[in-house]
Structure formats: structure tokens, C-alpha cells
Design a protein around this nucleic acid. Structure first.
Length: 223
DNA sequence: TCATTAAATTGTT
DNA sequence: AACAATTTAATGA
């Protein structure tokens, strides 16, 4: 996707909006490009926007007191995030870092609040998204305890293609194996092995700096 | 457009 | 964690 209009067209929560509502959203939302490695927002900053990914890939991370970083989840093109902070926190609780050059859509708090106050469909979408994320995190804890590294990598990748959170029908993701490791809690070396296993199983194809998905259902069910 | 070089990523130990 | 090999991106002729 290139433009805000395309992102809005692909987003599930715009389906219940009237043309006038959509125009207002489009007028008030700004687009900004971030280079790879840049922070889209930092922990502790005031929460001013609900943020969508027009094109790119960002990760949600947190740094502990000893300087160690953990990656919680990735957000790909078509996804929106930050509603949790917008609804309940004065400041951001996580860092958001671009994993590659990314184009982001920033919806002002006032616009978000207006949708929340006026549109039932928007509220339903937020419930769905919050529920989907919760399922994702619960599943991650479960997998961490029950599944081996190959399956963990498989499901972390599959999560990046959740059709409810990222409705565009993407066939690949531009991400290094090192970052896949951070997402799935596995060393880069082990990710490399896992990807070879998954490729041999016909579930995906490994390219330089990119992973192509061949069998999404198979990835989800692996292990 | 092509060749060279630097940087990033991968595959292996 | 370290290393060599490979691929891409950037640079300039």
C-alpha cells in the first residue's frame, strides 16, 4: 500500500463509516515516513495518536532496567495499534521501532475519540482487535511452554499474517532472520535452522531478507 | 549502464 | 559468539 486512502479502504473498521465520516478521518490523519531503525514512538511519550501501518513493519518492544530489550509483537501493513494506550494510559508503555523503511498513518486522539463516541462499528472493531491480540499473547505463552523452536518460529511468522489484524492479503514479509528470532524468542542461529525445516516442509520460502509464505494454514498448525 | 565498494544478512561452527 | 560466504544497496565513472 502507498497511500492513506488505500490503508483506510483495506481497514475493517472503516466499513461502517459514512462517506462524510471517512472524509473527516482522512483529512485529520497524517502520514509520515520512518527509515529502518527509527522509533515511531517511545515509551514515556504522551499518547497523541492511534497509529496505522500504511506500508512497512514495526515491532513493539520494551527495555528493562538492565538495558535488555524484549520484542512483544510485530505489526505489518494494514495494522493499527495504540488503542490500549489511548484508552487508558497517559504515556506510551512501549517503544515502537521500524524494522524497515515504513510509512505510518497518525490519527489524532480527538479523531479516535470521536469515532469511539459516534460509531458502533468502530467499537466492535476495537473489541475484536483487543480480543485477537489477547488470544495471540496467550497463545504465545502456551507455545513457549509446549512447543519446540521450529513450531514457535512457524507460529510467530503466521501471527504476522493474521487476517483480522492485517487484512491485506500479503504473501511475504520483509524481515531479517535476526528479527524473527526476537519475535519468536529463539536465537538467530536456531531461526535459520527452523526456516530450513519449514521450507523443506513446503510451508514457506526463504529469500534474502525476506520470507515468502506458501502455506499459511500449515504454518499455524505446525508442531 | 556497469563496475566497485560498503553494508547487511545468511549459513555454519 | 565468531567467522566466512552471499546478497543487496550505494556510489561514481
Amino acid at each position: 500500500m502507498d497511500s492513506l486512502a488505500e490503508l483506510l479502504r483495506a481497514s475493517l473498521w472503516t466499513r461502517s463509516l459514512t462517506r462524510a465520516q471517512l472524509d473527516r478521518v482522512e483529512a485529520e490523519t497524517v502520514v509520515r515516513d520512518f527509515p529502518a531503525g527509527a522509533y515511531v514512538c517511545r515509551k514515556g511519550e504522551p499518547v497523541e495518536h492511534w497509529i496505522g501501518v500504511v506500508d512497512g513493519l514495526v515491532k513493539m518492544t520494551s527495555v528493562n532496567s538492565q538495558g535488555k530489550t524484549t520484542t512483544f509483537t510485530g505489526v505489518t501493513s494494514g495494522g493499527w495499534f495504540g488503542e490500549g494506550s489511548l484508552l487508558k494510559d497517559p504515556t506510551r508503555r512501549y517503544d515502537i521501532e521500524a524494522l524497515r523503511s515504513s510509512r505510518m498513518a497518525l490519527m489524532p486522539r480527538a479523531t479516535f475519540q470521536w469515532l469511539l463516541d459516534t460509531d458502533i462499528g468502530f467499537n466492535r472493531f476495537l473489541l475484536m482487535q483487543l480480543n485477537e491480540r489477547l488470544s495471540q499473547f496467550i497463545a504465545m505463552v502456551e507455545y513457549e511452554r509446549l512447543l519446540g523452536p521450529d513450531a514457535r518460529v512457524a507460529r510467530s511468522l503466521a501471527a504476522l499474517f493474521n487476517p483480522l489484524l492485517y487484512p491485506e492479503q500479503a504473501t511475504h514479509v520483509q524481515i531479517s532472520q535476526e528479527e524473527v528470532g526476537y519475535l519468536s524468542g529463539v536465537s538467530r542461529q536456531r531461526v535459520n535452522q527452523a526456516l530450513q525445516v519449514l521450507e523443506k516442509a513446503g510451508l514457506l520460502k526463504v529469500d534474502y531478507g525476506r520470507i515468502r509464505i506458501v502455506d499459511l494454514a500449515g504454518l499455524r498448525a505446525f508442531g
